[in-house]
Amino acid sequence: MAAESFLAQSLSTLITDFNRRGIQYALAGGWAYSALVEPRATTDIDILLLMEQPSRDRLQSLLSSLFDATIVHPAAMVFRGISIWRCVGILKNQEVVIDVLLADSEYLRTALARRRQIFLGKVSVPIVTVEDLIVLKTLAGRLQDQADLQKIRLRQDDLDVDWVYVAEWKVKLGLAT
């Protein structure tokens, strides 16, 4: 069996630390897709996080004990109403990108409240629901997100998707087609 990748090790360390500290978060992005739909490659960690008074310093403090060095971009990127802080953790000359999505809107607080627990290996991790994964991927709209959404549609009978919830949030967020 191959050694666990640096990305997977970093995810495990992050989850274990957040769980120990009682931080309100949920795994999102490629890791959530892999857990909920089907395994696929990803190059970063996407975390939906509830944080009071978010700042570069608070994020730096949150992640600094996990890495030899942590670089947090100077300000959050705001994309379609979602605040995303790009963080880079460096450990033993290896880097991992952690995108922190702030639960700072009605929708994202709802998505965080709806999170479900799953196990990745022996570690329990809160993860966004498949419905919220669909909404988040629709918001992002990149080619990879579109491909992921197509696969979700192909597997929708197996995934037991609440399409009414998805449609309601798409309308509220101005994504309805």
Score class of each variant (00 low, 15 high):
residue 105 S to Q: 12
residue 9 Q to M: 08
residue 97 V to C: 02
residue 143 L to N: 14
residue 160 D to Q: 15
residue 121 G to K: 09
residue 129 T to K: 12
residue 88 V to R: 03
residue 35 A to L: 02
residue 106 E to T: 15
residue 165 Y to W: 11
residue 25 Y to H: 06
residue 129 T to N: 06
residue 169 W to A: 11
residue 133 L to T: 07
residue 108 L to Y: 14
residue 83 S to Y: 00
residue 14 L to N: 13
residue 142 R to Q: 02
residue 131 E to S: 10
residue 25 Y to D: 04
residue 54 P to D: 03
residue 91 L to M: 01
residue 92 K to Q: 08
residue 1 M to Q: 15
residue 166 V to P: 11
residue 119 F to E: 01
residue 33 Y to L: 00
residue 132 D to H: 07
residue 55 S to P: 00
residue 79 F to N: 06
residue 88 V to D: 01
residue 51 M to W: 01
residue 114 R to P: 02
residue 144 Q to S: 01
residue 170 K to R: 13
residue 28 A to V: 05
residue 169 W to T: 12
residue 43 T to K: 12
residue 11 L to N: 14
residue 18 F to A: 03
residue 48 L to R: 01
residue 35 A to I: 03
residue 67 F to E: 00
residue 168 E to M: 15
residue 145 D to K: 00
residue 64 S to F: 03
residue 21 R to L: 13
residue 54 P to R: 05
residue 137 K to D: 00
residue 111 A to P: 02
residue 157 D to A: 15
residue 149 L to H: 07
residue 26 A to N: 04
residue 90 I to T: 01
residue 107 Y to A: 05
residue 108 L to S: 10
residue 155 R to H: 07
residue 62 L to G: 09
residue 68 D to A: 07
residue 176 A to I: 13
residue 123 V to Q: 13
residue 64 S to Y: 11
residue 68 D to M: 10
residue 101 L to Q: 02
residue 88 V to L: 05
residue 83 S to L: 03
residue 84 I to V: 15
residue 79 F to L: 04
residue 3 A to V: 12
residue 6 F to L: 11
residue 51 M to V: 03
residue 133 L to Q: 07
residue 136 L to T: 06
